[in-house]
């Protein structure tokens, strides 16, 4: 019968123990990695911009498309249009003007129609358009394909 605590056994216990401890420090990140994070992916191909109920006809809403501000507009006839909200003149963020049924840049009074075409003021070119899809009550916006 060997002694319970000879050098070899202690060493084996030591190596075994530290192996387990170290493996723990490796497996911990792996397990945490595999757990899906609560916050879902921010910038994907489709962003839920608004809901049908929240957007009355003749209204607009700024939302984040990835990292960029974007504008979704519900026309008077109920149809949708969405654009990147950066004015093509300088870098201001445009907004919807229900009184004029146009998209307006407050900085230098630039106007775009609801197809994004620059119709008045300094903007040199149309807004970058996005694509709108509705699914149930949700309104999704994607890049123009």
């Amino acid at each position: 019968m060997k002694r319970l605590l000879d050098r070899r056994t202690i060493l084996n216990w030591f190596v075994g123990g530290s192996t387990f401890a170290w493996l723990g420090s490796v497996l911990h990140p792996v397990v945490r990695f595999l757990m899906p994070p609560p916050e879902q992916e921010a910038a994907v191909s489709a962003v839920k911009a608004a809901s049908l109920t929240e957007m009355a006809p003749n209204s607009g809403k700024i939302f984040k498309f990835g990292r960029k501000p974007a504008l979704i507009v519900r026309r008077v006839d109920g149809s949708f249009a969405a654009f990147l909200a950066k004015c093509t003149h300088l870098d201001c963020v445009v907004q919807y003007r229900p009184d004029k049924e146009r998209i307006w840049c407050a900085c230098h009074d630039g106007f775009y129609d609801l197809n994004g075409t620059n119709v008045a003021g300094p903007p040199p070119r149309p807004l970058d358009a996005l694509e709108v899809h509705t699914k149930g009550d949700d309104v999704y916006v994607t890049r123009k394909s």
């Binding site: 990140p29 990695f33 994070p37 921010a42 990835g66």
Partner: peptide
């Protein structure tokens, strides 16, 4: 591990890698 989150298309690749780096726990490490 990376393939669990990576989305291999031009629309989504960059955003999914940023998601891995910024939002997934220890994603930056992997």
């Amino acid at each position: 591990l990376l393939m669990f989150y990576y989305k291999g298309s031009a629309d989504t690749a960059f955003a999914s890698v940023r998601f891995i780096s910024a939002k997934v726990p220890f994603g930056w490490l992997v």
